[in-house]
Design a protein around this nucleic acid. Structure first.
Lengths: 223, 223
DNA sequence: GGGCGGACCATACCGAGGTTTAGGATCGCA
DNA sequence: TGCGATCCTAAACCTCGGTATGGTCCGCCC
């Protein structure tokens, strides 16, 4: 709508969505590739999980189509691997003969969908659309957060500490007493914080602190 | 002014957890009841979804064990019914012969787990424990939110409007210009807001506004 | 009609927030 | 040894936030 974000960092999410397909059966890869390409989606397919890991993931909304039964590694285990490696991409599982416990485990671990072969093309396309959309959102949030963290990283330890106390609602004089400073010094730090973080107002800063998960944790020991 | 900040609202979550069981097979109800009671959980069981709906739900962390195949209504449909009726309770499905699409649909709709009969008692207990815990958390959050909403409801329309602008970071004089008031009037409103909402500081108020989802939406029409 | 609450405004006062200017002290690094 | 970053403080000055006192106007309900 309105509200220019004013961040010069719109260098992400400009890339087109990508669908990744991992299946050891070349004919399946082929069929899925054709399906997705027919609706204008970019596709990258792989014969194994290992191949996929070699590939440098683009900074674009994407999702992963995975057969639950993979050559060396089960799809479920691979899902866990990705999570452990901090690679977060929505996963759509396919299976020819899966069971319910598998399904539950996959869904609990965050899978977007779980399709049984044979599935209708439209079901797959719907799942992919939802997955891409989900990824687009989470990428957006992650980007905002990482920019905030970058700003936060430019603060000195003292400034970080003061920021936590300011956003917790303490007055300058209380902060000064809390950490043994003159009130004027706190004001100075506070000014630096506002400038470095690019906050236009105190509510702005409070919201940043919320996103960053800042409590009195960064402060010193409490009673 | 009323200004009754000390709302005696600690009357929740003191009740013990309850497990609800819906199954048309009395022997299943009996077995599950015994299982849960054996670990000290309170159980209420029903032969049909309809019976369950007659029951007045207690204000306690709870969960619902549901057979996917119910007498009149499918478990999946009943899940949707509950959601539509704004009854949010974690659901654990059981099934003798369910399929994967059912499972996926249930999990996507928020089910906690989906157990295939026969299941191990421990699996059921684990699922129930997780579900109760989830419900305890969401009840806690819901309670905090409803208390906030109660406070917010005591604000006059003008005060609500000013609150939105204050928490968005505008200065008093800007707010005054925005809605055509004298700055002093804004200050008065602001004071009332802080008192009525029980906010001890501006950051406090900002966090409340975040929880309440307050944007310029409650203000007047914007460009 | 009188009471009540909401909304509005003025004057005055004071405390809190915030900047500028001008320093001093410490520490690590080139 | 000099430089820069960090951290601290002071005095002066101004704006902003917030409260109190006192008052007007309007609409609603008994």
């Amino acid at each position: 709508m309105n509200a220019r974000p004013a961040s010069p960092s719109s260098l992400a999410s400009v890339e087109e969505p990508v669908v990744f397909v991992i299946d050891d059966d070349a004919s399946v890869r082929e069929a899925l590739s054709n399906l997705f390409r027919s609706v204008g989606l970019r596709v990258e397919s792989f014969g194994s999980a290992h191949e996929f890991l070699q590939y440098k993931l683009p900074n674009a909304p994407s999702c992963l189509i995975l057969d639950i039964r993979l050559p060396r590694l089960s799809g479920l285990d691979f899902q866990a691997e990705l999570a452990k490696a901090d690679i977060h991409i929505p996963i759509i599982f396919m299976t020819g003969h899966g069971d319910i416990p598998m399904t539950v485990r996959a869904m609990k671990a965050g899978a977007v969908d779980f399709l049984t072969k044979p599935f209708r093309d439209q079901d797959m396309l719907d799942a992919v659309t939802a997955a891409i959309e989900r990824d687009r959102n989470s990428r957006g949030e992650a980007m905002v957060l990482s920019e905030l963290q970058a700003l936060f990283a430019t603060l000195t330890p003292r400034e970080r500490q003061v920021m936590a106390l300011v956003t917790s609602g303490l007055m300058n004089k209380q902060i000064a007493a809390e950490i043994g400073l003159a009130e004027i010094t706190v004001k100075i730090h506070r000014g630096h914080i506002m400038r470095k973080m690019g906050a236009k107002s105190l509510p702005d800063l409070v919201r940043m602190a919320e996103l960053l998960g800042i409590g009195p944790a960064s402060g010193r020991s409490q009673t």
